[in-house]
Computed example of a mutant assay.
Amino acid sequence: MRESLFIKKNLARWKKYQEEPTDNPDEMSERFVSILDDLAYAKTFYSFSKVTRYINGIAAGIFQRIYQHKKEDTGRFLLFFKFELPLLFRKYHKTLLYAFCFFAVFCLIGTFSAAHDETFVRGVLGDEYLNMTEKNIANGDPFGVYNSRGELYMFLSIAYNNIYVSIACFVLGIFLGLGTLWMLFRNGIMIGAFHYLFVSHGLGWKAVLVVMIHGTIELSSLVISGCAGLILGNSILFPGTYKRSDSLKRAAKDGVKIMVALVPFFLVAAFLESFVTRHNHMPLLVSLLILAGSLAAIVYYFILYPIILHKKGYSLGDKGEVLITHKIAAAPHE
């Protein structure tokens, strides 16, 4: 079918969808299926035409109405975490990979340095912490630091510290990303030295089982904050077709969304460190289940789920709106 005939045949219906929105669930569903059929046909035969973008916009509008409830703020909240945020991460998966690689290298540097310089761990962790930890190891309680304070006080202080460090990691990205790299370097060196301290006492595996109960989510959140900071820095260094000021605004908006998404993870990590890690003699199976569950949640929500949504045809528009591109070619219209 020629494009002009295709438009002429369906334009009245498209305008009705735009100008006469409905709140009837059945009718919305029917319209959505119909417009996706049109979109699939347009993508197949007129993929670079303006009509394809026009239909996509109509489909996105109907999609928003289906998944958001005017009378309930929770509708917008769920839409954000179910679609908008995962698609945002899909957009920045490469930057997230860079942040992870930088942090992993910095951790290895910290471990390598600690292994070749006996004074390195003391210089990084400080005399007070090192002396306390070595005393706990000598007393048969190497992770006693995690039960040295009350649970609630520990929860509040750790949650505050995690949020502070992550926000600093993000905000310092304004210095062309160098501030973010410094924060990743500083924390990576510390983590590497910290873990080698236990390795040197034959407690490396035990440290993984105990510390990573909360560390899996905590360190993942730091890497994701680093991703947000690098997004901020890249917007200045590589603005693309935008003005640098506009590019920075867009990146800052995306970065803030990422930081908002991390708040629940900060709280979970603080809860685990305050209320769970202190029980460092728990059964091996329980520790492994917590570790595996934490890692699976991070990998699925921030990596796999965004890829799944993208393959299903969901994407983000220039203004952050959720778009639907029906990727299954429809049968030609008669």
Rank of each mutant, 00 (worst) to 15 (best):
M1C: 04
E3P: 01
E3F: 08
I7Q: 03
I7D: 05
K8L: 15
K9C: 01
N10Y: 09
A12I: 12
K15E: 15
D23W: 08
R31K: 12
V33H: 05
V33A: 12
I35D: 00
D37H: 10
D38Q: 07
A40W: 05
A40D: 09
Y41T: 01
K43Q: 09
T44L: 05
F45Y: 15
F48I: 05
V51A: 08
N56L: 08
I62S: 04
Y67I: 06
H69S: 15
E72C: 12
G75K: 02
F80Q: 01
E84T: 15
P86Q: 05
R90I: 06
Y92L: 01
K94H: 10
K94L: 13
K94N: 11
T95V: 06
L96Q: 05
Y98K: 02
C101P: 00
F106C: 07
T111V: 10
S113L: 13
H116Q: 10
D117V: 13
E118R: 10
T119H: 11
F120L: 07
R122H: 14
V124D: 02
V124M: 05
L125A: 04
G126R: 03
G140L: 09
P142K: 06
F143V: 00
F143D: 00
G144K: 00
V145C: 05
S148W: 01
E151K: 11
Y153C: 09
M154I: 10
L156K: 06
A159W: 01
A159E: 05
Y160G: 03
V165M: 00
I167R: 03
I167P: 01
A168E: 10
C169S: 04
L172E: 04
I174G: 06
T180R: 01
L184N: 04
M190L: 15
Y196F: 12
V199F: 11
K206V: 07
V208C: 13
V210Q: 08
S220R: 07
S221D: 09
V223L: 00
I224L: 13
G229E: 00
N234W: 08
N234A: 12
S235M: 03
S235R: 03
I236T: 09
L237A: 08
P239R: 01
P239W: 00
P239C: 01
Y242S: 14
S247N: 02
L248P: 02
K249L: 08
G255I: 02
V256D: 04
M259T: 07
M259P: 02
V263P: 02
V263N: 02
P264E: 03
P264Y: 04
F265P: 03
F265S: 03
F265E: 03
F266P: 00
L267W: 04
F271L: 09
L272M: 05
T277P: 07
H279A: 04
N280R: 10
L284W: 08
L285S: 12
L288A: 07
A296K: 08
Y301V: 07
L304Y: 14
Y305W: 12
I308M: 08
K312T: 09
S315R: 10
K319S: 13
K327F: 03
I328N: 09
A329D: 11
P332S: 13
H333Q: 15
H333T: 10
